[in-house]
Design a protein around this nucleic acid. Structure first.
Lengths: 111, 111
DNA sequence: CGAGTAATTGCGTAGTTTGCTAACTATGCA
DNA sequence: TGCATAGTTAGCAAACTACGCAATTACTCG
């Protein structure tokens, strides 16, 4: 079983349904049923996806009567973003050169 | 089986060994054996991790005699970064407010 | 209490991932 | 040709993942 936060975060993001849930939650809290609605999937399945997100710390579930309003939690995404930052710099410095290479090669071998 | 690029990218990132390989490659190309050295794992296992990274498009393997010099490939990480960007904005605008909420709640319910 | 809504849990199935060892391919060099 | 190095493939077991259906919990309201 994976223990470190970063691995759990990325694993949680490695699913289209879960990413869709997160982007929905970025617009505000929602209940499980609301989150499930757009997906061609049973409620239990969505509930489990939510549990993965919750375990990863990406979602926090509240309790209001029989509803569990879900909220987006920033920390793990911030951490993932921080992990990516050095690569962003890396690309920023190399991308112009890459563009140059692509331009040169397209001159020799036009698309 | 997952098909979309983003899912494959995040799945590839969801492993400490693979992330370590990427950060090593950010400093320049390396052979499979060189990449395997720091890890308490057999060479075949590392080779498989590399295949995951290659399938995700994060690593490109060359061919020089009996060596396969591996290079970091930017595109999938750029795409992952682009997926994250809106959340980055989201947090930037909400983090101060979140801090405020946390401060208020700690006044009512001190830790 | 009983009916209805919201959500989770149990269980079975199918497929994937990860690690190992052993065997194999490919290349270089004497 | 024969040996050493670099790396992959095959085969296996254990663990994990994703899904559906059925049952269960938790709560509201009449």
């Amino acid at each position: 079983m994976r223990v470190d936060t970063l691995s759990r975060t990325f694993a949680a993001l490695a699913d289209p349904t879960r990413r869709a849930i997160l982007s929905r939650l970025a617009q505000g809290p929602a209940t499980v049923t609301e989150l499930a609605a757009p997906h061609a999937m049973t409620l239990p399945s969505v509930s489990r996806h939510l549990r993965v997100l919750e375990t990863a710390g990406l979602v926090v579930k509240g309790r209001e009567a029989q509803w569990r309003p879900c909220t987006l939690a920033p920390e793990p995404l911030v951490e993932a973003d921080e992990w990516m930052a050095p690569y962003r710099d890396f690309f920023a410095s190399r991308l112009p050169r890459l563009a140059e290479v692509l331009r040169d090669s397209s001159e020799r071998n036009p698309t």
